[in-house]
Deep mutational scan, measured.
Amino acid sequence: MEVVDPQQLGMFTEGELMSVGMDTFIHRIDSTEVIYQPRRKRAKLIGKYLMGDLLGEGSYGKVKEVLDSETLCRRAVKILKKKKLRRIPNGEANVKKEIQLLRRLRHKNVIQLVDVLYNEEKQKMYMVMEYCVCGMQEMLDSVPEKRFPVCQAHGYFCQLIDGLEYLHSQGIVHKDIKPGNLLLTTGGTLKISDLGVAEALHPFAADDTCRTSQGSPAFQPPEIANGLDTFSGFKVDIWSAGVTLYNITTGLYPFEGDNIYKLFENIGKGSYAIPGDCGPPLSDLLKGMLEYEPAKRFSIRQIRQHSWFRKKHPPAEAPVPIPPSPDTKDRWRSMTVVPYLEDLHGADEDEDLFDIEDDIIYTQDFTVPGQVPEEEASHNGQRRGLPKAVCMNGTEAAQLSTKSRAEGRAPNPARKACSASSKIRRLSACKQQ
C-alpha cells in the first residue's frame, strides 16, 4: 500500500481520502468484538498479612480480608486513616479506646483483636480482627420478611446475652447493641463488635452510672431520649438488646419516626405494640426488656430465667442462610486472597510482582521504634555504632529488605517449588510478632 504524507491529507475531501486508502487503516468495530484482558491483581503485604478484597466500608474506614502468612488464618483488617478520623467527632479517641478494650477481652461471643499495625509515614492504622463471614443486618436484609425464624432468632439472642453478660462482668457498657454490630462466623457463632462508643466503668465505681451516649437513635432507651444527665449503663444495653430481639423476630421496630426528633419523642413516651403472632412468652420477655422505668427493666439474670429464653424451640421454618457475597455473588464466600496468593505462588519472584506497604510497620504502639547501633568497621576489626531503624520486634528492616532482594536475584530452581506461605513470609520485609 502506498504511504501517504499526513501533511497532504488536509487537502483532500472525505471521498478523496477514502480513495487514497484511509479506509485501510481506520476501522470501526462493535464493542462486543473487544476482548478485555482482566487487570492483574497485584499482591500487597502489610507486615506478614497478605491483603485481599474489600469486605465493607463504614464511617471510620474500610475493612478488607487478609491472610496471615505465618498461621494461614483468615483475618479481617480495619484500615483507618488518621486524616479521616480527625474529621469525625471523637474519632481518634474512640478508636484508641476500642483498641484498649479489645486487647483485654477474651470471649467467644466478643470479636477478638489479633494485631494492631501502624504506618507512621502514611498515617494509617490497621486493626487486624478475627474473620466473620457476614453481619446479622446483612442476613436480615437478604430476606423479604426482614426477620429470622424463632428457632434461629433464639439461638442468636442467647449468644448475644452470653457476650453481653461477659462485657458487663468486665465493667464495660457497649451502648450500641444492634444487628449491624453483631457479626457471624461460618459456624454460626455470634460476635459482638464495634466497641468504639463503649465505656469502661471505673474499677471502684459504686454502680453503672453513665453520662454520655453515642449509640444508634432507634435503639436508645427513654432515659436517653428524654435527655437525662445520668442513667444506668447496663440497663441501656438491656433495652438495646430488647429492641434487637423485637427486630429479628418481627422484622419491625418498636419505635419509629420520620426524623430523629419524632423518633425520640415516640421513644420518650414509651408506647409501642407487640405483634400478636409473637406469642405470650416472647411478648412477656419483650415487655420486661423494654420496660420504661430502668429500675423495673429486666436484668440479665431475669432474662436467663425467663421461660422463652430457657425453652427449646424446634425449627418450624427453614433458617435464613448466609447470603452470597454482594460484589462477586459467591454463595460460598470464598477467600478473596486466592488470586493474590496464586500471583505470588505461580509467578517468578520479581520485585515488580508484589507490593510491600512499607519497609517498617510499627505494631502494638503509636510511637516510632527505637534505634540500635549499626556496626561500623574500624582499624582493629571492631565496629562502632551508628543508628539503624528496627521493627518493634527488633528485626532490622533494611537488612531483611536487602537480603530479600538478593535472594530474589539468585538463580535457584529449587526455590520455585516452595509453598505459597513460605514465599509470602520471604517477601515480607518486616516480620511481626
Results as ranks from 00 to 15, higher is better:
274 I>Q: 15
54 L>F: 06
222 P>G: 02
109 N>P: 00
398 A>G: 07
124 K>G: 06
358 D>H: 02
382 Q>D: 12
261 Y>P: 07
376 E>P: 10
193 S>F: 00
59 S>D: 05
230 T>W: 08
277 D>T: 14
259 N>M: 10
283 S>G: 08
364 Q>E: 01
40 R>P: 08
317 E>G: 14
30 D>G: 13
9 L>I: 11
270 G>Q: 08
117 L>G: 04
264 F>E: 14
399 Q>P: 10
100 Q>S: 07
85 L>V: 08
238 I>C: 11
279 G>E: 02
218 A>D: 01
406 A>H: 14
31 S>F: 04
88 I>S: 08
281 P>L: 08
125 M>S: 04
113 L>P: 02
115 D>N: 15
163 G>W: 05
79 I>H: 00
144 P>S: 04
46 I>V: 03
311 K>T: 10
205 A>F: 10
76 A>G: 07
94 N>G: 05
106 R>Y: 15
375 E>T: 05
64 K>V: 11
381 G>I: 14
377 A>P: 11
32 T>S: 12
72 L>I: 08
107 H>G: 04
118 Y>K: 03
62 K>Q: 14
286 L>Q: 01
384 R>A: 10
189 T>C: 07
38 P>H: 07
395 T>W: 15
259 N>F: 09
172 I>F: 05
315 P>L: 11
104 R>I: 09
358 D>Q: 12
262 K>F: 03
40 R>V: 15
331 R>E: 07
77 V>G: 01
153 A>Y: 00
255 F>L: 02
367 T>L: 12
64 K>W: 11
257 G>R: 03
336 T>I: 10
278 C>L: 06
259 N>R: 07
240 S>G: 06
121 E>R: 10
190 L>M: 08
426 R>K: 12
137 Q>H: 05
284 D>R: 13
373 P>C: 10
195 L>R: 01
277 D>F: 10
412 N>M: 02
176 D>E: 01
310 R>V: 12
348 D>H: 08
401 S>G: 06
166 Y>C: 04
396 E>V: 13
410 A>G: 09
9 L>F: 06
137 Q>P: 08
186 T>N: 01
279 G>T: 14
355 D>V: 07
356 I>N: 12
262 K>L: 07
427 L>V: 08
367 T>E: 13
369 P>A: 11
350 D>M: 15
396 E>N: 12
81 K>Y: 09
415 R>W: 12
242 G>L: 00
59 S>V: 13
350 D>H: 09
55 L>S: 03
397 A>I: 13
304 R>I: 02
46 I>C: 08
6 P>Y: 15
65 E>P: 03
115 D>M: 06
113 L>Q: 06
174 H>T: 15
221 P>S: 06
272 Y>S: 04
393 N>C: 13
201 L>M: 05
231 F>H: 04
170 Q>M: 13
286 L>H: 00
30 D>E: 07
124 K>I: 13
38 P>G: 02
139 M>A: 11
332 W>P: 15
426 R>N: 14
326 P>H: 04
288 G>A: 05
15 G>D: 15
398 A>T: 10
174 H>G: 02
278 C>H: 06
11 M>V: 13
138 E>M: 09
122 K>N: 13
178 K>M: 01
105 L>W: 02
327 D>N: 10
358 D>C: 13
117 L>Y: 13
102 L>S: 02
415 R>E: 12
346 G>S: 12
266 N>P: 07
405 R>K: 10
124 K>S: 02
47 G>S: 15
284 D>N: 09
381 G>S: 10
405 R>I: 14
269 K>A: 05
